[in-house]
């Protein structure tokens, strides 16, 4: 954890929009640097037993976990080296290939203006807007929580296929396999969050899709930002109501039209 010298402070690179920069500025924070973490992990196949991906689902979950945690560790190191207090707006990119899982995280390190941070930086996929809303409401992000689960859709026996052909009936074994995989993915996400000491996970995103090269294997992945209340409890924020007509460039003045302008 290096101490950034004052002279380096202006050497800022950021992928934030001007709105986001101004928002950060309004709470007296600043962007520091673009930071990166990437990792590729191997998925070994079970020899050449002809079963292909059969049985590899556990390994892929494991490989996924390894790629993600290593990528998070790298982006965290990069952030610490830049003197950031945390990384916001992390773009999360996963690719599952036949023998490898690839995880790439890119975000912007931020910190309270001029203060080189010491200690473990947080990593979050929240946008600057969301980060500030949470911050103002008294919450702090802790890190990215991930969960993944890969399931092989069971083949139906010939008998079952015939039985189900004409009937409108639930395919219970399929339901069960898919349901269980979803639960497992979410459970892994939750236990990751608990491991960070979080009291919740916000903005969870998840994807479920068959692997491009093995259509009978479905991969579930879920991720979100683990958060915790900081110190003095939740602060309630009163939102202001805005009615907009379609496009943001030309808003009609409804107050004027309705004669309600004060």
């Amino acid at each position: 954890m290096s101490n950034t010298k004052r002279s380096d402070l202006h050497q800022v690179t950021s992928d934030l929009t001007i709105d986001e920069t101004l928002l950060l500025h309004s709470m007296d924070w600043e962007p520091v640097d673009i930071v990166v973490g990437a990792s590729v992990a191997a998925i070994p196949t079970m020899g050449f037993s002809g079963s292909g991906w059969a049985g590899a689902t556990d390994q892929s979950s494991q490989a996924f976990g390894s790629a993600v945690s290593s990528a998070v560790a790298r982006i965290r190191d990069d952030c610490a080296r830049a003197g950031g207090a945390g990384v916001v707006g992390v773009g999360v990119d996963f690719q599952v290939y036949r023998h490898t899982v690839q995880a790439v995280l890119v975000g912007t390190a931020v910190r309270p203006a001029g203060l080189s941070h010491r200690g473990q930086p947080f990593v979050s996929d929240l946008s600057v807007r969301d980060f500030i809303l949470l911050h103002n409401a008294g919450w702090m992000p802790l890190g990215l929580a991930f969960g993944a689960s890969f399931v092989q859709v069971p083949y139906r026996s010939i008998g079952t296929v015939f039985k189900q052909m004409a009937a409108n009936t639930e395919m219970t074994n399929l339901t069960e396999a898919m349901y269980q995989a979803r639960e497992q993915g979410m459970e892994r996400l939750q236990s990751a969050a608990i491991g960070m000491g979080a009291s919740g996970v916000v903005a969870v995103q998840y994807s479920d899709r068959p692997l491009p090269f093995a259509s009978h294997v479905i991969g579930f992945t879920a991720w979100g930002t683990a958060v915790r209340l900081s110190g003095d409890g939740h602060r309630y924020i009163k939102p202001r109501v805005v009615v907009s007509v379609d496009d943001p460039t030309t808003l009609f003045d409804l107050q004027g039209a309705l004669g309600t302008r004060g």
């Binding site: 690179t13 990437a38 992990a41 690839q102």
Partner: peptide, 23 residues
């Protein structure tokens, strides 16, 4: 056969960081 493929991880990270350093 398990675990991280260090060389590939390093390459992915390095390409992005080098672009940043060049800028």
């Amino acid at each position: 056969p398990y675990g991280e493929i260090t060389q590939l991880s390093d390459a992915h990270t390095a390409a992005r960081r080098l672009a940043r350093d060049h800028v």
